[in-house]
Design a protein around this nucleic acid. Structure first.
Lengths: 222, 222
DNA sequence: ACGCTAACATACTTGCGAGTATGTAGCCGG
DNA sequence: CCGGCTACATACTCGCAAGTATGTTAGCGT
């Protein structure tokens, strides 16, 4: 009997953890956290359940570590861009928003974490809070500080509520991106993502501008 | 033997369905859809599992009917307010937004449906899509049409992207409200809800205004 | 006053999936 | 070249909750 059994498992203890985290993000984003079995993640990574439980004590820890790993990369890129960016605040806001909502993913799609984490609020509250702190909140605090800077330099109007504006814009964009993957089933949902970003930023900046930019001298009937 | 068993169950076939739907909304909002057992809903309504399965074939149908019932009431109120509202578009936008994000709930808190439905995208996709269509999408289409009306009358500037603005504002406010119930555990999250609504609306309207709102030339009384 | 069905309650089944226990082969130090 | 640990694979347990089957009482028509 030619025992052509399964070939012996490949051992790569260095790269395995990151492979597992990436696979987890992909599968979680596709099927959702709770609907994903550990075996699904294992299969996507080309291993079995044992391998995952060898590196991560529990399903929740797998998610926690995935969030951590993802946030490090995403905000690393934003911080880097903003570090050596000068010029008017509006320009830096454009930079930041484009970087934040661009395709930063290991999965190819945008806002993978948001897609996963918005759903698990009651299932894994710890992970959900960690995501909120490290993602959306961090994001709008950054935007808020930029707006405040613009207010203090006079580039923006002084009576704008920077916190609310930052909150709503960040949350709105995140949610719109989270809804995009199901646009194929709900036509009214679909929109060009670049237009979504650009128009949002322009709308935001316009809302921040002082009211009296142009003085209309000759009122021919408009 | 004084058989002081459980008193015989009260039978009220008229009111029972609505009682069950309300209880379901409350408990779903608290613990999430998947973490809620049918027995939890039953207990909250003062009945047992049998009663629920007598009126609803499945847990998903219970959710579907709850969505339907809720949307009817919520949008009924909005439509009514807008029906006999005249005046400038900005005033009507204020009316609509306040009505939409005010406490319209049977549960007392705002955005109960959003709180529940944002989480069940992968669990009950049918319910999720029904909510999107009947809630957020309907909401931003309404807002978008108001903005377009304002553009056509010259009240708003003509080069604003009405669709994107409506989308982001609605989605942003919804999400902010969804996050509010956990603000007790994440201090940075908490904000006064009235300020959230008011500042958002003012920010929106300012972003819609033509750049030349104030004509500081000849103050002939207009 | 009797029987039938509606309106529930109670007891049971069942599948699914996280976690665990156990097995096994490669690799590293001595 | 040989023990033992590491890096996995495989087989099993076990609890939970949706759904089902079955009971029980109320009320209504006749």
């Amino acid at each position: 009997m030619s025992t052509a059994k399964t070939p012996p498992p490949e051992r790569r203890p260095e790269s395995r953890p990151h492979e597992l985290l990436d696979a987890a993000l992909r599968v979680f984003a596709e099927r959702g956290y709770r609907n994903t079995r550990i075996d699904d993640v294992a299969e996507a990574a080309g291993v079995t359940k044992g391998a995952i439980y060898h590196y991560f004590a529990t399903k929740e820890e797998l998610l926690l570590r995935a969030i951590e790993s993802y946030h490090d990369r995403a905000f690393g890129a934003i911080d880097e861009i903003l570090r050596d960016a000068a010029g008017p605040v509006s320009a830096r806001i454009r930079l930041m928003m484009r970087k934040a909502f661009g395709p930063t993913d290991p999965t190819g799609q945008r806002m993978t974490l948001a897609l996963i984490l918005q759903g698990v609020r009651h299932d894994v509250p710890l992970a959900h809070r960690q995501w909120l702190r490290g993602g959306p909140i961090k994001g709008w605090l950054l935007l808020e500080s930029l707006i405040e800077e613009g207010k203090s330099t006079g580039e923006f109007r002084a009576d704008v509520d920077a916190e609310v504006a930052a909150r709503v814009m960040i949350a709105g964009l995140i949610t719109q991106f989270v809804w995009q993957p199901i646009a194929s089933e709900i036509p009214e949902l679909s929109i060009d993502v670049d237009r979504l970003i650009d128009s949002s930023v322009e709308f935001l900046l316009h809302g921040l501008m002082p009211a009296v930019v142009v003085a209309p001298i000759l009122p021919g009937r408009n």
